[in-house]
Amino acid sequence: MKFLAVCGFGVGSSMVLKMTIEKVCRARNINCEVQNTDLTSVKGMEADAVFTSPEIAMDLKQTLKCPVFGIKKYMDQKEVEQAINQFLENQ
């Protein structure tokens, strides 16, 4: 399974979100690869799901084929876990 954490430049906040996704996945024993990337690059990448800010999520939902989840608080493990649970339920 491959997840992408996305922010405008692919450096700061996407790295924080990536680390939170990894923590949640480790705690749940979910085997996945998590990458952080920028808004432009994500459109040419393959992933099972994308996690980003709610504002960017609205744009990406129209252009990507995979599920896109808007996360308000990147360090909130419960919010990220809810999004991952939603993804897993729809698989």
Rank of each mutant, 00 (worst) to 15 (best):
Lys73Arg: 15
Ile56Leu: 05
Gln82Arg: 11
Ile30Ala: 00
Met58Cys: 06
Gln77Ile: 04
Glu81Thr: 04
Gly8Val: 15
Lys23Ala: 10
Lys61Gln: 14
Ile21Ala: 00
Val6Lys: 00
Gln86Asn: 13
Val34Met: 01
Lys43Gly: 04
Lys65Asp: 14
Phe3Asn: 01
Glu22Tyr: 05
Phe51Lys: 02
Ser14Asn: 04
Gly12Asn: 12
Thr52Ala: 01
Asp59Asn: 06
Ala27Ile: 12
Lys23Trp: 04
Glu22His: 07
Arg26Phe: 11
Lys43Ile: 09
Ala49Gly: 02
Ile84Phe: 03
Val34His: 03
Met19Tyr: 12
Met15Trp: 09
Val16Tyr: 06
Asp59Pro: 01
Gly12Cys: 08
Gln62Leu: 14
Ala57Met: 09
Met75Ile: 14
Asp38Phe: 08
Val42Gly: 00
Gln35Pro: 01
Glu46Val: 13
Thr52Ser: 03
Phe87Ala: 11
Tyr74Ile: 00
Ala47Phe: 01
Leu60Ile: 03
Cys66Met: 13
Lys61Pro: 05
Leu17Glu: 07
Asp48Asn: 14
Leu17Ala: 06
Thr52Leu: 03
Val80Arg: 00
Asp76Cys: 01
Gln62Gly: 08
Cys7His: 01
Ile71Leu: 07
Lys73Gln: 15
Gly8Met: 14
Asn90Tyr: 04
Asn31Lys: 14
Ala49Ser: 00
Lys43Glu: 13
Ser13Pro: 02
Asn36Thr: 10
Met19Pro: 07
Leu60Ala: 08
Met19Ser: 12
Ala47Gly: 04
Gly44Ala: 11
Met45Trp: 13
Ala83Thr: 11
Val16Asp: 05
Cys7Trp: 04
Pro67Arg: 04
Glu22Met: 12
Val50Thr: 05
Val42Ser: 02
Leu64Asn: 12
